[in-house]
C-alpha cells in the first residue's frame, strides 16, 4: 500500500471550501471572515515552511541538526507557555521554569522512547525523533501552561487565605497545598480525558494520519497507545516539576508569600 500523492490543485479545491465558508460568514455579518482567512493562510504558509525544514533535516539527518531543531522547538514552546500566563513570575522565571520543566520531561521521555522502546538506528533518526518530540512538547506545553496559570492565578486570588494559613503556623507547602493540587489537576486533565475518550469519541490525529498513509490499523493503534502513554508521562512529570518549582518561588526563605514576585502578563 502506498499513499496517493496530493498535488497543489487538489489542496486548492479544499481551500475553496474555506473560501466559501468565509464568504458565508461575511454575508451573515459574523465578523469572522477575516480572521478565518488569515488563519487558513497561516496554516498553509507555516506548514509549508515546516515541510521544507523537515525535508532538509531528513536528508541531512545528522545529530547536531536534529538537536538544533529540538532546541528551537523547546524555546518556542517555552515562549508560548510564558505568553499564556495571566500572572507571570518576574525576572524571567516564568520562561525558565516552563522551559526547564519541558526540557526535563519532554526531552528525556523522547530520548528514552527512542533509545529503549522504538529503537531506530541511529536513535536520532529524524523521521522518528522530530514527530515524537513535537507531539510530546505540544502536549507538555499545554499541561505546563495550564498548570502554571492556575497556580499563579490561584495564589493571586487566594492571597488572604494563604496568608491566614501561614499566620496559623502552617508551612508554605500546607498553605498552598490546595492550590498546587488544583494546578496539577488542571495540567493533567486534558491528557486524562484524551486517554479516556481515545477511539470512542474521536480517532486520534496521529493514528488517522498513519492509517491514511497506508500503515496497517493494528500497527497505527500500537503507535498511538505508545504516544498516549509517553504524552501522559511527559505532561505529568513536566507539570509536576513546573508546579513544584514555581510554587516554591512564590515563597521566600522565610516562607513568606511573595506576590511581588508576580507581574500581570499581557493576556486577558
Amino acid at each position: 500500500m502506498s499513499v496517493i500523492a496530493l498535488s497543489w490543485w487538489q489542496l486548492g479545491l479544499a481551500a475553496t471550501l474555506v473560501l466559501a465558508l468565509a464568504a458565508c460568514t461575511h454575508f451573515a455579518r459574523l465578523g469572522l471572515g477575516k480572521s478565518l482567512l488569515v488563519a487558513a493562510a497561516r496554516t498553509a504558509i507555516q506548514l509549508t515552511l515546516v515541510g521544507l525544514v523537515l525535508e532538509t533535516l531528513f536528508s541531512v539527518g545528522s545529530l547536531p541538526w536534529v538537536a538544533l531543531m529540538g532546541v528551537a522547538m523547546l524555546l518556542l514552546a517555552g515562549r508560548e507557555v510564558m505568553a499564556r500566563q495571566k500572572y507571570r513570575l518576574r525576572g524571567g522565571w516564568s520562561f525558565t521554569v516552563g522551559t526547564a520543566a519541558m526540557f526535563i520531561s519532554a526531552f528525556s521521555v523522547t530520548v528514552l522512547t527512542l533509545t529503549v522502546i522504538i529503537g531506530p538506528t541511529p536513535w536520532y533518526t529524524p523521521q522518528y525523533a522530530i514527530p515524537l518530540l513535537g507531539m510530546l512538547l505540544g502536549n507538555t506545553m499545554t499541561g505546563v501552561a495550564l498548570a502554571l496559570d492556575r497556580l499563579t492565578e490561584g495564589v493571586w486570588r487566594q492571597r488572604q487565605l494563604v496568608e491566614n494559613r501561614l499566620m496559623l503556623g502552617q508551612t508554605w507547602i500546607e498553605a498552598c497545598g490546595d492550590i498546587r493540587r488544583d494546578a496539577m489537576r488542571s495540567g493533567l486533565m486534558p491528557i486524562i480525558n484524551a486517554m479516556a475518550a481515545a477511539g470512542i469519541v474521536s480517532l486520534p490525529g496521529m493514528m488517522t494520519g498513519q492509517i491514511l498513509s497506508g500503515t496497517a490499523p493494528a500497527l497505527a493503534v500500537k503507535y498511538q497507545i505508545l504516544i498516549m502513554f509517553t504524552i501522559a508521562a511527559g505532561t505529568g512529570f513536566g507539570t509536576f516539576v513546573a508546579v513544584s518549582v514555581a510554587s516554591r518561588r512564590l515563597f521566600d526563605r522565610r516562607e513568606r508569600l511573595r506576590l511581588d514576585r508576580l507581574q500581570p502578563g499581557n493576556r486577558g
Binding site: Q158, Q160, L161, E163, N164, R165, L166, M167, L168, G169, Q170, T171, W172, D178, R253, R254, E255, R256
Partner: peptide
C-alpha cells in the same frame, strides 16, 4: 526571629488578622 523556620516562628508568635479566610 531568624533562628527559627518561618512557620515555627509563626506557630509561636501568632497573628490574628482583621479579615479572616476559611478553607
Amino acid at each position: 526571629q531568624d533562628s527559627l523556620a518561618g512557620h515555627r516562628w509563626r506557630q509561636s508568635v501568632m497573628m490574628v488578622p482583621a479579615e479572616t479566610a476559611w478553607w
